[in-house]
Simulated assay, not measured.
Amino acid sequence: MLRGFYTAASGMLSQQRRTEMLTNNLANANTPGFKADQSSMRAFPEMLIQRMGLTDIPVENGYRLPVNSLVGGLNTGVYMQEAMPKFLQGDIQQTDRNTDIALLNGNIPVNPETGLSGTVFFAVANGNGEPRYTRNGNFTLDGQGFLTTSAGYYVLDDQNKPIQLNSENFTVGEDGTIREDSRVAARLGIGYSEDPYRLIKEGDGLFRTENGAELANAYTDGNVGFAFKQGNIEASNVDASRTMTDMMTAYRAFEANQKVLQAYDRSMEKAVNEIGRLG
């Protein structure tokens, strides 16, 4: 009986976590470059149930032999193993702001181990100067002329140096070259991950590698195709209508597990209050 409590409770907890993930997706539906999370549900390891008993052997002095008979497998619940970002390209939206730059996927190689495409990112530095990566091209210039993200992190060039400009009157070519008055000022730094699902998602639309190391320079790999579009940003890839539907499904699943838990609770109450009266 108590095993049923744990199974229903695990279902409630997993659906609660899934609802929180979907709520975060919906809250970032208008965040440039945001990559929606998708959940991975997994069942706890099954328990193999056996019946243990004794059988009498018809011999002169009598003998009882232990016997185990297989009953079958029993699942003990479910949990949300992880939430992984979905790296599909978001829609490109025109803003006509010089500091907005969209990173467009081109011919991206497919990882032979996973069967999934790699991804390119803008290279930035967090507050501690550590390498981080983002798809959010909603940039701005700070008071010293450094190109930064909306959260204030430095955007890096292809030499991993902060990009400093004189004004917002610059142009960005399809190859990532930034020019001011026909002078080459810098080239946007782009990192490439052949397996982006191994990256760790942080706040403010940032990603990092597992060991904090830098990603490969996308310019040095001739097989990686990408381009830039100034005056545009990549929108979030959250499908709002699908997310709302998934949230309702998760809520109904939570409610169903809750009703099962309540039924177990009533059964236990009945057993405690009435079984003792049978004598």
Score class of each variant (00 low, 15 high):
R18G: 10
T31N: 10
F34A: 06
G90E: 09
G205Q: 12
K35W: 07
A27Y: 07
M41K: 08
R266L: 05
D181F: 00
S241T: 13
L88D: 15
E20L: 13
P85Y: 08
V224D: 02
T243S: 08
T19W: 09
G231C: 01
T31R: 14
Q164L: 15
P196T: 08
E180I: 09
T19F: 11
Y219W: 06
K270T: 12
I101C: 02
R266F: 01
Q94F: 02
M248D: 09
R3D: 01
M247Q: 14
V59Q: 10
L116V: 02
F34T: 12
I200T: 15
Y197D: 13
V59D: 04
N61L: 02
G137D: 09
Q81C: 03
R42H: 13
E202D: 14
T220L: 11
L156N: 07
V155E: 03
P109C: 08
R132P: 03
P58L: 01
V172A: 00
D195R: 13
P196V: 07
A29P: 00
K229R: 05
N98D: 05
E20G: 03
G191I: 04
Y264V: 09
Y251K: 14
A240I: 13
R242T: 11
I108C: 01
D195L: 10
S241Y: 10
R97M: 09
Y63K: 13
A102F: 05
I101N: 06
G225F: 05
N160F: 13
N160Q: 14
V67W: 00
D265Y: 00
E20D: 15
Y154Q: 15
T23Y: 06
N61E: 14
L103F: 08
I200C: 07
T148C: 10
E46C: 00
N138I: 03
R132C: 14
M52N: 05
P66V: 12
N273Q: 02
Y6V: 04
A218K: 13
T243M: 12
M21D: 07
T209L: 14
G191L: 06
S117I: 06
S267L: 10
Y153A: 12
Y154V: 10
P109M: 05
F207K: 03
D204Q: 12
L147M: 14
N211P: 01
M244W: 09
N166K: 14
Q89E: 15
G115S: 12
I108V: 05
F139T: 10
Q50M: 04
M84P: 00
N126E: 11
P162M: 08
A263H: 00
T95R: 01
V71L: 03
K161N: 15
L22M: 01
R135Y: 02
R187K: 13
R97H: 03
G279M: 07
T31S: 15
P85R: 11
N30R: 13
A29V: 11
A256R: 11
D157C: 06
G137L: 09
R97V: 01
L13E: 04
V184N: 10
I101F: 02
E210R: 15
Q94H: 08
L188K: 08
E46H: 05
R3G: 01
R179L: 04
M268Y: 09
F5L: 13
T114S: 14
A185L: 13
N126M: 08
Y219L: 12
N107Y: 05
D100H: 12
P131T: 11
R3C: 02
Y197A: 08
T249C: 04
A29D: 10
F170R: 02
M12P: 13
